[in-house]
Nucleic acid binder design. Sequence first.
DNA 1: AACCAGTACAACCGCAGTTCC
DNA 2: TGGAACTGCGGTTGTACTGGT
Length: 320
Amino acid sequence: MGRQPCCDKVGLKKGPWTAEEDKKLINFILTNGQCCWRAVPKLAGLLRCGKSCRLRWTNYLRPDLKRGLLSEYEEKMVIDLHAQLGNRWSKIASHLPGRTDNEIKNHWNTHIKKKLKKLGIDPVTHKPLSNNTTDQNQIKPEQPPLQEQEQDHHESSIIVEPEIKEAEKPEAEDQFMTPLFESMDTIMMNGFCTDEVPILEPDEILAPCAGDASTSSTATTTSSSSSSSSSDSYSNNPSSKFLEDLLLSDSEWSNDNNNNYYSSMALWDDDDFISSLDMLLNDDYYDSDRKQQQQPFDASLNQYPRMIMDSSESWAYGLF
DNA sequence: AACCAGTACAACCGCAGTTCC
DNA sequence: TGGAACTGCGGTTGTACTGGT
């Protein structure tokens, strides 16, 4: 017997999600938590496969996601991490709270690659492009990309990140930071590391899964098996404490970032999240107060992705 | 106004790893 | 211990949008 396909294919919807589907999914996860994605579409009344639901949730609907372009700081972080980890987007994403692997991957392919090339840096090897030629293929045979080098490490069981003990990660990663970006190093040397910024797990926000709250967090994209220890430590703490700490940090960060990006971080405390979701799930409420809902947000700080947003869809984006 | 090429990003696909029985 | 089920990940595709002509 072959493996059962992830979905029946027949009769299942594909393509862009509608607001109605989003609502159903959010409603379901709100009441049931994240468990058994295969069963989600059936139970939630969606004509989607479980995989599609999971992706929609982790990449788009999760309340702890940041929306908008990556800040300059985040970009540098991505570049630096990419130099160390290669195309392991989920690992990279785990260092950037509120960002998904998909988002980072897209941003890399559409923005960062070009920027690096403009700066004369090979986005694959993270080394200066040859002056003689722009054909990076001529470099490759002599100088394998860091990514490939790391592959070799994997093959010889010398794995960069997985072998780093959780408690040692911040220091350990400092060692791996390349000097490509002095500012990054400076930040790291000053004691800031994204590993110290806990990733807000959905189960810290949402009502716990009826079945097993302890496992619900594993369904998030950013909570890979190597998700930071800090998130673990915070999972036992009230999220209000976490947010308190985080917001304090944010205010400091925003002073260091001209664009005040972090002031727009969409992290919610428990009460706000639930009440706001209830509010937003109610079209009438949201439609009538949409302008008011959006007022606190500076459009320049919340550069939502270009989307088709009619009045029935925009409720979802008010979340972020 | 219409067309077209380039861009950005959501979503899909298929494979690999993990868990469970 | 092996296989099925489930989940996560990275690569790729599809399509809406933008800007130029």
